[in-house]
Every structure is written in structure tokens, then in C-alpha cells.
Amino acid sequence: MRVGFTVNGREETADDVWEGESLLYVLRERMGLPGSKNACEQGECGSCTVLLDGVPVCSCLVAAGQAEGRRVRTVEGLAEGDRQAPIQEAFVECGAVQCGFCTPGLLVQAHDLIERVPRPSDADIREALAGNLCRCTGYEKILAAVRLAANRRAENP
């Protein structure tokens, strides 16, 4: 089947898509966007998180046909031009990355949090990131990065 949707502001289509492909697979294997990662394929780890019509979802559990005509934003679309998104800058500054596999999903999910919640508490941050697993960092530096990005956003909205 043919599947078409908007990705990071561009109209994209893919042909000969098998019904069993996920949105994640279409993004990575057919549209040249490997930023979103494929790990558990069960919606448990969050490494495939993308924004679908503006809200974060696990793209591994979205059947390809369900993405038809919708608006997708991936980690590749967080930066504005040459400038990294505030959450990306904060991850770099805080050293919130080790192996990096969970990072794209965390960036998309944390970006959504700081856009929605002006001054998230630690409890807010932990709950927002509950669906994103990191097996390296122990999360402390990730929490620090989200706090930093949220504070900057609150000071310069």
C-alpha cells in the first residue's frame, strides 16, 4: 500500500509498504530518518518516541496505515535550522548521554514536557519520562538536563 504523511514539515510518501510495517519502520527504512530507535517493539522502552499530530507516541506500535495523512515530528525535526533545540543543548551540556540509544526518544519526550509544563517538578519529570528506559546513565544527568532546559525556557519563554 502507499502511505503518505508529513514528516518534520515535509510531505513524504512511501510505496509498497507492507501492512505489518510500523510507523517506526517506515521512518527508518523508507524515509531515511534513523534517529528514532528500534528496541523493544512493545511500547515499553520509549526509544522510538515521535510526535504524532503533536503528541508523543511509541512509533513502534503505530501501524503504517494509521499514520496516513497525519503530522509526524521526529528527533531529526527538533532542531531549528542549525540551532539545536534547548533540550538537545541541555543534554550535551549535562552529559546526559552515554551509549546514546535511548537519547532520541528521551529528547522527544522531554521536549514535549517542557513545551507543555512551564516549571515541571521532579515528580513531573519522572512521570513524564516513565516510559523511556535508559540502561546506562542511572537517569541523574538526564533529570539534570531536563531541569536545565525547563529553567531556561521558564526564564526566556
Binding site: P56, V57, C58, V62, Q109, A130, G131
Partner: peptide, 9 residues
């Protein structure tokens, strides 16, 4: 229930 990503869908 679930996580934010799952509740959104």
C-alpha cells in the same frame, strides 16, 4: 496506567 506515550494513543 501505562506511560504518557501509551496514554496518548
Amino acid at each position: 496506567g501505562a506511560s504518557g506515550q501509551l496514554r496518548n494513543v
